[in-house]
Deep mutational scan, measured.
Amino acid sequence: MQRVNMIMAESPGLITICLLGYLLSAECTVFLDHENANKILNRPKRYNSGKLEEFVQGNLERECMEEKCSFEEAREVFENTERTTEFWKQYVDGDQCESNPCLNGGSCKDDINSYECWCPFGFEGKNCELDVTCNIKNGRCEQFCKNSADNKVVCSCTEGYRLAENQKSCEPAVPFPCGRVSVSQTSKLTRAETVFPDVDYVNSTEAETILDNITQSTQSFNDFTRVVGGEDAKPGQFPWQVVLNGKVDAFCGGSIVNEKWIVTAAHCVETGVKITVVAGEHNIEETEHTEQKRNVIRIIPHHNYNAAINKYNHDIALLELDEPLVLNSYVTPICIADKEYTNIFLKFGSGYVSGWGRVFHKGRSALVLQYLRVPLVDRATCLRSTKFTIYNNMFCAGFHEGGRDSCQGDSGGPHVTEVEGTSFLTGIISWGEECAMKGKYGIYTKVSRYVNWIKEKTKLT
Score class of each variant (00 low, 15 high):
E288V: 08
S11P: 08
A233F: 11
E35T: 11
N343L: 04
C141W: 01
G122R: 10
E86I: 15
I7S: 05
T85H: 03
F196I: 07
Q241I: 13
G125P: 03
V243Y: 12
N80T: 15
D200A: 10
Q241M: 12
C128S: 03
G236F: 05
E116C: 10
C18V: 09
R75A: 12
L60D: 15
E320W: 01
N245V: 08
I17H: 01
C117S: 03
T209F: 06
K89R: 08
C157I: 00
C69P: 11
R3Y: 06
N151S: 06
G106M: 05
W118R: 07
A279N: 01
C157M: 00
F123Y: 07
I214S: 08
T417D: 02
C18W: 04
G179P: 01
I136N: 08
K247E: 05
F31H: 10
D111T: 06
S385P: 04
N306C: 05
E73T: 10
L32K: 14
G58L: 09
T461D: 14
N222E: 03
I15F: 04
N113M: 09
W431G: 09
T458D: 01
K188N: 08
F55V: 14
V242F: 00
Q370M: 07
T194G: 10
F238I: 06
V419E: 02
F55S: 13
V199N: 12
V447S: 03
V202D: 10
L319A: 06
S156P: 00
R140P: 13
E456Q: 07
D378E: 11
C28M: 01
S406C: 13
T133S: 08
R162Y: 11
Q2N: 10
K311P: 12
N38S: 13
N213Q: 10
W356Q: 08
F388L: 10
D315M: 01
F221M: 07
D93S: 14
P375R: 11
L60A: 15
L23R: 01
C128P: 02
S187C: 12
K247M: 11
L103D: 13
I15S: 02
F360Q: 08
V331F: 01
H289V: 11
C128Q: 03
T209M: 10
K260G: 02
F55I: 06
R75E: 15
A366G: 12
C252D: 00
R358P: 05
K68N: 15
Y305I: 02
N113R: 10
I210N: 03
L244Q: 01
I210D: 11
K260W: 04
S184A: 09
C128W: 02
K362W: 08
G427T: 00
Y352N: 13
D110T: 13
H289S: 13
V154R: 07
N304I: 03
S156A: 07
E323H: 04
G412T: 12
S25P: 06
R3G: 07
E433K: 06
R226H: 11
E73M: 03
D95M: 09
I214P: 07
E434K: 13
S423Q: 13
E323M: 14
E67W: 03
S184C: 07
A192C: 10
E54N: 04
R364G: 11
S423H: 14
P175R: 08
Q216V: 13
D232L: 05
Y22R: 02
Y391P: 14
T194R: 07
G272I: 09
E193P: 09
Y441V: 13
L367K: 07
V92K: 14
V296F: 00
I136G: 09
E159M: 05
L318G: 01
T158M: 08
S187E: 09
C119T: 02
A266E: 00
V183C: 05
L327F: 15
E124D: 14
G413Y: 15
L367T: 15
P101L: 12
N343R: 08
P414F: 15
D212M: 07
V359N: 14
N304Q: 11
F224Y: 11
P301V: 11
I309M: 07
E116T: 10
N306F: 04
L372K: 15
G13Y: 08
R162E: 09
E286C: 09
A164I: 04
E320S: 02
A149P: 07
T133E: 13
E231S: 05
V92M: 11
I309C: 13
R46A: 15
I40C: 14
M8V: 09
N36A: 11
A436F: 09
N258C: 00
S385A: 09
E259R: 06
K247A: 11
C128M: 02
E270Q: 09
N135F: 13
V331Q: 00
F87H: 15
S354H: 04
S49N: 15
V181P: 06
F348M: 11
Y391C: 15
L23P: 01
T461H: 15
V174T: 07
E66D: 06
C119L: 01
E10N: 11
I297P: 01
N36I: 04
K109S: 07
T133N: 11
E165V: 08
G402M: 13
Q2P: 10
Q143K: 00
K457N: 15
K440Q: 14
L369P: 13
R180K: 09
V243N: 04
R75H: 15
K109H: 12
S156D: 10
G125F: 01
T16W: 08
L14W: 13
P175I: 05
E208S: 08
S220T: 08
I17F: 04
R140L: 14
A192Y: 10
G398I: 06
R384L: 12
Y441D: 00
Y441I: 12
V228C: 13
N104S: 14
E76S: 15
S11C: 12
G50V: 06
K438W: 14
Q370K: 11
G254A: 03
L369K: 14
C252H: 00
E53R: 04
D322C: 02
L60K: 14
D223A: 08
F87G: 15
G412C: 07
V248E: 11
D378T: 03
Y305D: 01
N135E: 10
L14M: 07
T225E: 08
V181G: 13
A26R: 00
F196M: 04
P375S: 14
V227P: 10
K89Y: 05
H34P: 11
T84W: 04
L52T: 15
Y330R: 14
S220A: 10
K446A: 13
K89I: 06
Q185M: 05
Y330A: 10
K455T: 13
C117W: 01
V154Q: 12
L369W: 10
V181R: 06
Y391K: 10
H361G: 06
C145W: 03
N343H: 12
D378R: 12
V419N: 07
L318C: 02
T461E: 11
T29V: 14
N42F: 05
V419M: 12
T190L: 05
K311F: 05
D378S: 05
G403A: 12
T215L: 06
L372S: 08
S187A: 07
K260M: 06
N104C: 02
Q143E: 01
F71P: 14
R191K: 12
S49T: 11
I344N: 04
G246F: 06
K339M: 14
F251Q: 07
E259V: 04
N304K: 04
S354E: 03
N452A: 10
I390M: 06
G236C: 03
I334E: 01
A192K: 10
G106Q: 03
T190H: 09
D131H: 04
V30T: 11
T386E: 15
G179S: 01
V296A: 05
G253S: 08
C69E: 03
K455L: 10
T29P: 00
L52N: 15
L41W: 12
K188C: 13
E73W: 04
F78K: 15
N310Y: 04
Y330C: 03
V368N: 04
C108P: 04
S182Q: 06
I210R: 07
V447N: 01
M6V: 10
A366C: 14
V447D: 00
V263H: 01
G403K: 12
R364D: 12
V242Y: 00
S423I: 09
E208A: 11
K459I: 12
D378K: 12
E288L: 07
S411Y: 10
K247R: 11
D410C: 14
F87A: 15
G125M: 02
R140D: 09
G363D: 06
G125W: 02
A397M: 01
K152V: 12
G236H: 08
N59F: 08
G349W: 08
K457A: 11
R226W: 04
P172L: 03
G409D: 13
K440H: 14
